[in-house]
Design a binder for these strands. Structure first.
Lengths: 150, 150
DNA sequence: ATCGATGCAAAACATTTGCATATTG
DNA sequence: CAATATGCAAATGTTTTGCATCGAT
């Protein structure tokens, strides 16, 4: 956090109350909030905050490489923001819409494989797996076997 | 194509002039057009076509599983549509924005790996690699070595 | 004091929807 | 003929922008 602030400041950015607040929220938020979600939380602590400031802060962080935008299947109208620094991937359950983050060493093989095949340079990878999570699968199986009372 | 039409028709859909035209365009389009791009081409052959019809046709095909929507880094405001039937992945060059489609048997390993690890069921995977394509890398390297005249 | 950031309102943009009319099967 | 798709216009929802003012360095 301190590190992020220092780095951003050295880039010429100014550390306003609003930005500090939004950074705090991103830091503590588990999952991938939308701009509106960040705004809703931030507004409680700083009521005169405007949604456009949230967007501007997000775009600033994005440019600095501190955050990335994603769209999941669900409600793909709104962007969701991912503040996690290291490369990772996502799984989204098509039923409950929950997202699981994961790392995959195998993905490096996939990248290398493609690089060799097409003579390109791969810098980043964005992978989203879709399927059914453990809980939803179990619930679904129960429904599939209707209760007969016998 | 015929197959697609038959299947769509058996699902209760009606084969209008507009739909046939849009299907034709999707069939012949290389790459991943936006709704506006499809509309622009289609309108030439059928001037009274409306953009909303393009969207409705797209959503219909999407529901029938004949097409899927994607967003690439570049201009992620607009959806792009992918009419290719089999599962495949994408690479986008961050410089020229060109997209290469590819298949990767290794991705099955990635999926299986994750399934076992988290006890979930993976149905589909959406992978986009970002990097620099061969041509752009070569152009870039030339610029990096400035011409001195000596 | 200067330059960048904010709040506000309005614009921009992609996509969707209600409804009367036209077309398909 | 009945049901479904279309064109049009208007609405929706998200993100961006211009501008006057404010605040950080």
């Amino acid at each position: 956090m301190k590190e992020t602030i220092d780095r951003l400041r050295s880039q010429g950015g100014r550390l306003t109350v609003q930005r500090r607040l939004i950074l705090d929220i991103l830091e503590s938020f588990s999952g991938h909030p939308t701009a509106e979600e960040i705004y809703a939380v931030a507004k409680q602590k700083y009521p005169k905050l405007h949604l456009s400031t949230v967007y501007r802060t997000i775009r600033w962080l994005e440019q600095e490489g501190r955050l990335s935008a994603r769209r999941f299947e669900e409600d793909n109208r709104q962007e969701r923001f991912d503040y996690t620094p290291s490369e990772h991937h996502h799984f989204q359950c098509s039923i409950c819409k929950d997202v699981i983050e994961f790392e995959s060493p195998l993905m490096n093989e996939v990248k290398k494989d493609f690089e060799d095949q097409k003579d390109v340079l791969v810098e980043t990878a964005s992978l989203i797996l879709y399927g059914t999570c453990k809980r939803c699968r179990q619930l679904f199986q129960q429904e599939e076997t209707p209760y007969t009372g016998k």
